[in-house]
C-alpha cells in the first residue's frame, strides 16, 4: 500500500525506477557548457549560378535530405529579394528558413523608406556576410553556403558567394557544395573568366545550368531532378521558374559503375 497521497496514480518506482525530475523541468535547465549547432540536420545540396552578358542564371533543386533519406521533395531554396536580386541557399534547411525570414524583413524595412534606394545584390550580399560572420563569431553558425546573384549598382551582372564562416568570393561562375566539384568545371567551359561573360547570351547560360543540374542529379546522391531556376536581367527583372525537371536522362552508364550496390566487383 502506498501511503503518500502525492504518489498515488503515478507509475510505481518498483516497475519503472525512480522518477527523473529533470524531465518535468526540461527546458528550464541550461546545460553547461552550452551546445550550439554541431552539424546540419535536414540539408539542401548544391546551388549553381552563372553570369551572362545581360544578367545571371541561378538554380537549386527542391530536395531536403535527412541524412541520406530524401525526406522533403518540395523545398524552395531560391529567394528573390527586391527587384534585381536573388539568394540561393544550400546547407541546413532550418537555418535556410531563418535566413529567408531575415531577407524578408530586410525587404520590408527597405520598402518602408520608399525613397528610390532599392536593395541591390551587392547590399544583400554584404548584409548576409555580416550575419554569417557574426554568427560564426558567436560559435553558433548558420550552417549554409549561399550564392547572391543579381545586378550591381551599375546594372552589371553580380555573383558572390558567402558561407557559414563568413568566407566570401566572387566569380563569373559559382557553385556551392558538391556542385563546386561536379558543376563548376562544366560551367567554366562556357565562361572561364570575367571577360568571357560578354560573349555569352541568356540561352547559352541557361542551357549550361540545365546541363549541370542533370549531371548533378546523375552523380550527387543527395540531389533531385526537380529544381527551380531564376534568370535576372535588367529588361525582365526576376524570372522565376519552379518545378523544372531534368529531361532526357540516360542511365546507361549506371550499369558500368562498380564498387557498391548489388553487383559483385
Amino acid at each position: 500500500m502506498e501511503h503518500d497521497p502525492f504518489r498515488w496514480g503515478r507509475p510505481s518506482d518498483q516497475a519503472y525506477g525512480e522518477y527523473n525530475n529533470s524531465i518535468a523541468h526540461a527546458g528550464q535547465q541550461q546545460s553547461f557548457p552550452k551546445m550550439n549547432t554541431q552539424q546540419p540536420i535536414v540539408t539542401g545540396t548544391s546551388v549553381i549560378a552563372i553570369k551572362f552578358k545581360d544578367g545571371i542564371v541561378i538554380a537549386a533543386d527542391n530536395l531536403g535530405s535527412y541524412g541520406s533519406l530524401a525526406r522533403f521533395t518540395d523545398v524552395e531554396r531560391l529567394f528573390p529579394v527586391g527587384d534585381h536580386a536573388v539568394v540561393g541557399i544550400s546547407g541546413d534547411i532550418s537555418d535556410l528558413q531563418y535566413v529567408s525570414r531575415l531577407l524578408e524583413d530586410l525587404e520590408i524595412e527597405n520598402n518602408y523608406d520608399y525613397d528610390g534606394h532599392s536593395l541591390r545584390a551587392p547590399h544583400i550580399h554584404e548584409y548576409l556576410q555580416k550575419v554569417f560572420y557574426h554568427r560564426r563569431s558567436k560559435m553558433d553558425p548558420l550552417w549554409n553556403s549561399t550564392i547572391v546573384g543579381g545586378l550591381d549598382d551599375s546594372g552589371k551582372p553580380f555573383l558572390k558567394y558567402v558561407d557559414l564562416l563568413g568566407v566570401q568570393y566572387s566569380a563569373p561562375t559559382l557553385a556551392t557544395g558538391f556542385g563546386a566539384y561536379l558543376a563548376l568545371p562544366i560551367l567554366r567551359k562556357v565562361v572561364f573568366e570575367e571577360k568571357d561573360v560578354e560573349k555569352i547570351d541568356e540561352e547559352t547560360a541557361r542551357n549550361a545550368i540545365k546541363e549541370c543540374m542533370k549531371v548533378l542529379f546523375y552523380r550527387d546522391a543527395r540531389s533531385l531532378d526537380k529544381y527551380s531556376l531564376i534568370t535576372i536581367t535588367k529588361k525582365n527583372g526576376v524570372v522565376f521558374e519552379k518545378g523544372l525537371k531534368s529531361e532526357e536522362q540516360s542511365w546507361r552508364f549506371a550499369k558500368d559503375i562498380k564498387g557498391y550496390g548489388t553487383q559483385k566487383v
Binding site: D113, D115, P122, H123, E126
Partner: peptide, 15 residues
C-alpha cells in the same frame, strides 16, 4: 556603410 556597403541616403538621414 558597414552592414550594406552603401552610403546613407539623404532622405533616410532626415527621416
Amino acid at each position: 556603410k558597414m552592414i550594406f556597403n552603401r552610403p546613407l541616403s539623404t532622405e533616410k538621414a532626415a527621416t
